[in-house]
């Protein structure tokens, strides 16, 4: 029922994914939401260095609640993906392999996913406590001043996601 995917998310792995597949993601992924996207996007436009390589990596649209002492992270579910649509094609052109969020994507993003052979995955919105149990390590690696919106490098084990838009453009949300 569930396919295991280990990061990095290479083009070969992406090619095998189909809309509707249930996946368990294991490995390193990075968080970025509205404010971090704006900074990465502006850095790319100015041809400045960005804090980590996007190549074959996965971005998780997520801003966690604070970790209690002794915990890795707080609640950690996905945020609405369409707010990143303005920035996404530029990031995909830089080699981003996949994204985890919730909700539909715009036409330009879907076109860019097909063009760049990437994938859009969804996690269940509002299941932040459950999803946090899959996060084994968390470290802020950039934009620390943004608080919850800083870029966190996460190590996840069996993070449950569903393929919403695959690299051929098949879309789980179509006609819904």
């Amino acid at each position: 029922m569930y396919k295991d995917i280990i990061t990095p998310l290479t083009k070969e792995k992406v090619a095998q994914l189909k809309a509707g597949d249930n996946l368990f993601i294991t490995g390193t992924i990075y968080t970025a939401r509205d404010a971090a996207h704006k900074r990465i996007y502006e850095a790319i436009l100015k041809e400045e260095k960005i804090p980590f390589s996007l190549e074959d990596n996965i971005l998780y649209y997520m801003g966690p609640s604070p970790a209690r002492p002794g915990s890795v992270i707080g609640s950690a579910g996905p945020t609405t993906a369409s707010r990143m649509d303005k920035y996404t094609p530029t990031l995909l052109n830089k080699g981003l392999g996949g994204m985890i969020g919730k909700g539909k994507r715009g036409k330009e993003v879907i076109r860019s996913i097909i063009q760049n052979k990437a994938v859009y995955l969804v996690a269940i919105g509002g299941a932040g406590a459950l999803l946090s149990k899959c996060i084994k390590k968390s470290k802020v690696i950039a934009y620390g001043d943004l608080g919850t919106e800083a870029i966190h490098e996460l190590y996840v084990e069996k993070l449950p996601v569903i393929v919403a838009i695959d690299s051929k453009g098949n879309n789980l949300y179509e006609n819904r």
């Binding site: 609640s75 509002g126 299941a127 932040g128 406590a129």
Partner: peptide, 24 residues
């Protein structure tokens, strides 16, 4: 299967003191 995850999520939130959703 989504609702099963959401029900588990409510139980984990209450028993382990993790906010139900990260957007508090």
């Amino acid at each position: 299967s989504v609702l099963k995850q959401l029900n588990e999520n409510i139980d984990i939130a209450a028993s382990e003191s993790i906010p139900i959703c990260q957007d508090t």
